[in-house]
Amino acid sequence: MKIAIMDGSPKNKDSASGLIAAALQAELTPAADCAVCHAASHDRDEIMAALASCDALVFVFPLYVDGIPSHLLRLLDEIQNDVATVAPGAAVYCAVNNGFYEAHQNGVAMELMKNFCVRSGLRWGQGLGVGAGGMVQAAPIGRGPLANLGRALSAFAENIRNGVSADNSFVEPNFPKFLYNMIAHMSWRVQARGNGLKIGRLWRFKISEVDEWVQSGKSSDINKGGK
């Protein structure tokens, strides 16, 4: 059995998608020959080779503006006519993680993936929505606040191994929403301060101030090292 996992985060390291992809790969190996491919850095030939004669294609990506990140969307758009020839009969699975706590906000992206399946003539397997993606780095998957995620990934991996289709599933951390939100807010402030931003005026603009801000070059001047 051959399985390709496509990591659709544009980040090369420290991404939630990368961790989820690695955990899935560990679950699926050695029962299957399972490789992880990074959509943003592998070229089209490498990607097509990775997809070739797979039984399952697993797309693991972050939710971007309620949908699929543009670089991954471009890949899907470009391969929709050929992918079924390259990997006939393959089932498509996806694990989508998002920044907000609620996992169900990944539902639209899963529908987009399902529509991709219909267009490309592949079989739809299942979608897994992972809420509070900012927490995936917080602990080893399967432990503490990520116990739920560990269980959800095991069940998801089993469906992939068996090639079965199932209802979408959604998972949130063993951690309260209000605390997750509080920590997220704190972290935005800390990061902004670290970049030398004054909290307050810079966060909220009147539209009339935008021109001044953009034209002053302050908004785009990263090379002067704002820190």
Binding site: P10, P62, W188, A192, W213, V214, G226
Partner: peptide, 30 residues
């Protein structure tokens, strides 16, 4: 394409740091 760096939130608020015309769109929206 977006690099997922969030600097449009924590370094150059309101503007993407990738220097091409895509960086202007949020300001134009306003």
């Amino acid at each position: 394409h977006c690099a997922g760096c969030f600097l449009c939130w924590v370094k150059t608020p309101g503007r993407c740091v990738i220097p091409d015309r895509g960086a202007d769109f949020a300001a134009i929206m306003t």
